[in-house]
Amino acid sequence: MDAANLDIASTNRIDALLKGAIDPHVHSGPSIAPRGIDHLELARELSQAGFAAVVTKDHDYAGVATAALISRHHPELTTKIFSGVVLNNVVGGMNPYAVEHTAAMGGRIVWMPTLSAENHLSWEKTSAWTHPASTQKMRPATAVPVLDANKRIRDDVKEVLDAVAKSDMALASGHLHVSETWLVFEEARRRGVKRLIFTHPEDIVAASLNDVKGIAAMGAYAEHSLCMFLEGSKFKTRTSDDLRQQIEAAGVGRTILCSDLGQVGVFSPLEGFRRGVQLCLELGYSDQDIRQMVSINTAQVLGLEELVAAAA
């Protein structure tokens, strides 16, 4: 087979693997940070590609109202759009009211603090780049702690975990230090939280491969940001072999892939997903392995199995 036909075969294979995929972590706009695509444009692009669902994430507001509007007024879109809430300063930090409101509006994920995490604020001081959504350009961020002076889970965090458990939403670790994630996830399990997502262990949170293995063994899914592994991404900090090691640490059955894209100056979330699938093929993962990581596992942790079945 000549090179042209090989390219066509590869493209068709990737197209097929994207049918029924879910991107659970996209930074589309509007936002205080520059964004290269808005929520509606995102849903349109992913519908054309056959994605089952997408979850938008903004560091400063719950996108559930926008998702509801798009779903209501654009029934032609086959990709279902969801959102969640990040427990940063703008929503009041550890705010159970924000969690309960997000749940009532159909939210799927509650992220622990990101830009307001104590770990993130420490990381930014030593990082070579400033997070594009940093609120330092406005009122300086105030740390939202999860542990007290004795390194125990704070009462306000426990109240949030109870709200997550009651709503059956997924809890994501955000930008907590991995040592905090262990404690928060253990407490979450004790309080009845069933859906856990370990956010990009490859960067910011100082996780080792042993951490990934152990947290996955706890029942969490390790979520990897493709933008941190892809050539041509301004967020690339890791190699393709790093991705292989991350996947092997948790296992294909406990790994989910997301684009973590939507920013300006980089390719789109859809293109990021396409390149990510291509990278997984180059690493030797089977079509079934890739479907597990881009669709089946994500549907399970978000409770969207029916959508994936319908898109298949």
Rank of each mutant, 00 (worst) to 15 (best):
H224F: 12
T199R: 04
E231V: 10
I296K: 12
G192D: 05
D260V: 00
F267K: 13
I197C: 10
K194M: 00
I290D: 08
L226M: 09
N210V: 11
K236V: 13
K236L: 12
E223W: 04
V264Y: 02
S286V: 04
E248T: 13
V252Y: 06
G214N: 15
R291V: 07
L279N: 04
L226W: 01
F198I: 12
F229I: 03
D241W: 08
T199W: 04
A217R: 11
I204V: 13
G253C: 12
R291W: 09
F273E: 15
T298M: 10
R254A: 14
R254V: 02
A217Q: 11
R291D: 04
V193L: 10
L283V: 08
G262V: 03
M228K: 11
D289F: 00
G253D: 15
K194E: 12
R238C: 10
R191M: 00
F235G: 04
F273C: 14
F267S: 13
A207F: 05
R191I: 04
R244Y: 05
A249D: 07
R244H: 13
T239A: 15
A250I: 04
I197S: 02
D241S: 13
L279W: 04
G265I: 14
L279I: 06
G262H: 08
Q278D: 13
K213C: 07
D203C: 11
D289S: 12
I290E: 07
V212N: 05
V266E: 04
R291I: 00
L196T: 10
R274V: 02
G219M: 05
G272W: 00
Q246E: 10
A216V: 09
A220V: 12
E271N: 10
K236D: 09
V266R: 00
S286Y: 03
T239P: 14
R244I: 01
S268V: 08
